[in-house]
Amino acid sequence: MSNVAYDLQTKTTVPNSYKTSSTLGKRIGFGILYLILGIIAVVQIYPLIWLFLFSLKTNQEVFGMSPFSFPHDPQWGNYAKAWTQGHINLYFFNSVLYTVIAVVLTVILASFVTFAVTRMSWKLSGLVLGLFMAGYMIPLHSTLIPLFSFFKTLHLINNPLSIILSYVAFNLPITIMILSGFYRTLPREIEEAAVMDGCSIHRIFFQITLPMTMPVLSTTIIINMIYNWNEFVFVNTFISSDKWKTITVGVNNFVGQYLTDWGAIGATLIISIIPVLIAFFILSDRIVEGIAAGSVKG
């Protein structure tokens, strides 16, 4: 009996748990439900649309007209201004550079650790894994002063290395957390066979295991990219020279300088969030998966 019901349930695509006894009351209920869900969606998205609208307006339009109006004569010049005047082009390039280097290092180092901990047998593996995982719980701000003086001693203040090393260290815990969940589900037979055939451990890692983890690697890569792109505190603390600032911090300074020019501020903000939004449009499933995987394990 229950099997029959179960089959019916999975074969139909409509939400039949509600449809089977579709009364008027239920339809109204459904309507209200969708209305609420829709309003929440609008609340989540509309501020960004509003931002885009005022990034194309002149100050007269922003101050004089309804905030919900469309720009009369779209001021694309705001974007040109933001891009060249506030060093935004330089900051953008720096952000790309730090993000790419840090992501590559994080994912490689995390894969090494996860492989050693979950595939190889040694006494302290549990303790080492725990040490990495616990790093996730430590508030970054409690490490900030010693990190600052450490980088200062090494003359790494105003040096991209301080940023990249910090990104890698602080993203290793979450990356290893996501990776280890996946490694545990991988079958060991192929690796065992490779050992029998006399394959070296490095070849096993690089040519057998690592390629098998491609799906989860792409998840961790995109999650790491978003974290690094958006990071604020490290750059704000370790970098004071404009030459090495990232777009997240640069945008903040730009806004401070051009307080009243809403159009240009809007344009810089849009430029700073566009890469993440594009990544989301292409890879939303991976991002959702990474967020779900990373925290549920916690």
């Binding site: 409690s142 050992v195 451990i201």
Partner: peptide, 28 residues
């Protein structure tokens, strides 16, 4: 012996371990 080679384990674990010790645990 292959899967518990101490040298390989150190090679794989130590760089990342050094980073989190140096930049997270010692600063704490």
């Amino acid at each position: 012996s292959v899967m518990s080679n101490k040298l390989v384990i150190s090679l794989y674990v130590l760089p990342a371990l050094a980073l989190i010790l140096l930049l997270i645990y010692i600063p704490i």
